[in-house]
Design a binder for these strands. Structure first.
Lengths: 140, 140
DNA sequence: CCCAGGTGCTTGCAAAAGTTAGCGATTCTA
DNA sequence: TAGAATCGCTAACTTTTGCAAGCACCTGGG
């Protein structure tokens, strides 16, 4: 299994920038986090509001921190943003961070026994390129 | 205090079906679930309300399904009942139960806050198709 | 008997959540 | 340049949440 060894090297190589991004969380409030997720998904405020079945002014108020959404709304927001509800709850300060452990995509891929080495490589490449794209687009 | 003794017996008696409660429990609404947990803990309505910092009439209404508690209230209820918040959210139908059964990769992707919804979708699609390919090729 | 203290439940009421209507600004098209 | 469509936001409104006060019931003790 020298393939596994390669992947371990790759994991080491990739781990550093990813770890760096985990700690600093400038999107302190739930609203800011939701807004960033929405913009990352290239959705307008109205579009996401429609998807989630809520009114657009209300979503606007949530994003600006003027309103605290109920559990149900938060759940539909999670669905609309294709994000784990736990993550959203953690961001909202409702769930303890330790409870909703932020798992590492790359680690998970590397630990998955049902993927081939080549497939792992592809997924990690994909993930890294996504991250890179997001990085450059957000700084512009 | 023969009442407390009775409740202890009741708690023991009830504990076994409680373990089986993780499976689909059709008659248990969130309110009923909370009430059962409260009684298992041998707490009166007012006691639990005090612990959670909410009013007793409100807790009563929650238990009877007349009110839908907010995220914050639900969280403090989870703390008061010494229950994982996820469990409570799942009972409330707010958290998707099957999400926990997904693979670690999918979970990790869903947890990653630095991907867009579309990117997440693509990665999950990729992962699923890999799995499918591996499945068919191994069974042949 | 009545008072004290426990249980859970009903009733208004203030404060939030959440909606509809519509504003001004931008962009694209005719 | 007019007109439509989109963007996010404000204002006024309705609905729901969550609480304080008080209800009726039960139990045990003087």
């Amino acid at each position: 299994m020298l393939r596994a060894k390669r992947l371990q090297e790759l994991a080491f190589f990739v781990s550093m920038p990813y770890m760096a991004q985990k700690q600093p969380d400038p999107y302190a409030t739930l609203g800011e986090f939701i807004k960033r997720q929405r913009e990352l998904s290239q959705l307008s405020l109205r579009q996401l509001a429609d998807i989630c079945g809520i009114s657009n002014p209300y979503l606007s108020q949530i994003e600006r921190g003027l309103r605290t959404p109920s559990s149900m709304i938060l759940q539909s927001l999670a669905k609309g943003l294709r994000i784990s509800a736990e993550t959203l709850y953690t961001q909202a300060g409702i769930l303890d961070p330790q409870e909703a452990e932020e798992s590492d995509v790359i680690k998970a891929v590397l630990h998955d026994p049902d993927l081939s080495a080549r497939q792992r490589e592809m997924m990690i490449d994909m993930y890294r390129s996504f991250r890179q794209v997001n990085e450059t687009s957000s700084t512009t």
